[in-house]
Design a protein around this nucleic acid. Structure first.
Lengths: 209, 209
DNA sequence: CATTGTTTGTAACTAATGTTACAGAGTGTG
DNA sequence: CACACTCTGTAACATTAGTTACAAACAATG
């Protein structure tokens, strides 16, 4: 686990001195698949870096309707937590473990200092922001320019890439939530995808062909 | 114009030394209402700061469908240009003057140095990023959770706030483009808003009541 | 293996949004 | 004022997505 952290940080260009500090002040956190990591309305005191597994970041409205914003994969961090903390704002999103995952939690109060003192960390944080920004734009593209059929298929392909597995283990209901639509609609379109031989359907499992 | 720049920057907490440098290496640019400032596919060599007026930032897909992402008002800057430049990527959005506007253009090659040397500038850039991030999220909320009627009304109220005028001088066609829908649909819903006495319609003009 | 809860399939219907077509009103210009 | 052009209103229709309702398949558990 520690090796994982070190390799991730040094690959991101973080210098040894800072890596040691991150090891010292941070701590690991494991989450089982499905576990809620950040809830809307809370205030983040830690910035999580994903060491293993996969997290989903989901936006919610007042009526608890949801939409998937993006995934966080190994090596990535939650720029939004950072922003939330710097500005002292509440989280208005929720983060869930999509797989069994391991995170490295860094207390927020070190952030400002490190951003100031370490060029490499600055770069890491900036580039995280930028990546998230790009992904938000891609999400906007999907909801704006695609119909639900294409959005669903793209969703499946994205998930395939994020999990590096052609098998998606989810119920139609769960998918419907990520796309902010209803289960019946998802079932209908999935069946259509199956008829067109793009996927195969089983209970709690979708195979991408 | 210069006074405007100085007051904006010092209000953002930028120190005098840097303000002077920004004045020295930058230059003003005026744009008439409707003028295109950044086109998709181009590479930005300058970061624009809005001194006067109002810019719109619009996302486009391959078929030239569009959606408004957010406005840039006085004092704000285009974080996306910055990101584009740092990563050397193409712009995949377009920026248009919504009113007659004045910008201060800063050559990109100073950015890295200033971010490194000036705490205040770092903060300014970070906070710009954060503001844009929040606005993207709000845009996602609107597209995802609102029906077109509510989205349109929110669009009008947002525009009212951005221009500080209860009169919106646009054709239905222009509004339809910002919302990625058709003119006929916008006309239909505007008429409904008028019947409910929330707005008044004239040619090329909508009054918010 | 009976019971319960979850998941999926499907039909029938409703609502929202998009499209096509056309008329009439307003504006600018020679 | 005649003409061309843009903008708006509206009807009729098509398509997409959302809803309700129900049955059957499957899984977990005692």
């Amino acid at each position: 686990m520690q090796e994982n952290l070190i390799s991730i940080l040094s690959e991101a260009g973080i210098e040894d001195e800072l890596i040691q500090e991150i090891q010292k002040v941070g701590f690991p956190k494991t989450a089982r698949s499905g576990e809620l990591i950040i809830t809307p309305g809370s205030t983040s005191m830690h910035m999580p870096i994903v060491l293993e597994g996969l997290l989903s970041v989901v936006r919610q409205d007042e009526d608890a309707n949801e939409i998937l914003l993006y995934y966080l994969e190994g090596g990535e961090t939650c720029a939004m937590s950072l922003a939330c903390c710097i500005e002292g704002k509440r989280n208005d999103f929720k983060v869930t473990a999509e797989d069994d995952s391991v995170l490295w939690m860094i207390p927020m109060n070190y952030m400002d200092e490190w951003i100031q003192n370490y060029r490499s960390f600055r770069k890491y944080v900036f580039s995280s922001y930028q990546t998230r920004f790009d992904e938000l734009l891609e999400t906007i593209d999907s909801i704006t320019f695609l119909n639900l059929y294409d959005r669903l298929y793209k969703y499946l392909l994205d998930k395939k890439q994020a999990t590096k597995s052609y098998e998606i283990k989810m119920s139609h209901e769960q998918i419907a939530q990520h796309l902010n639509t209803s289960r019946v609609v998802v079932s209908r379109l999935l069946k259509q995808l199956e008829n067109e031989e793009k996927i195969e359907l089983e209970r709690n499992r979708i195979s991408i062909l």
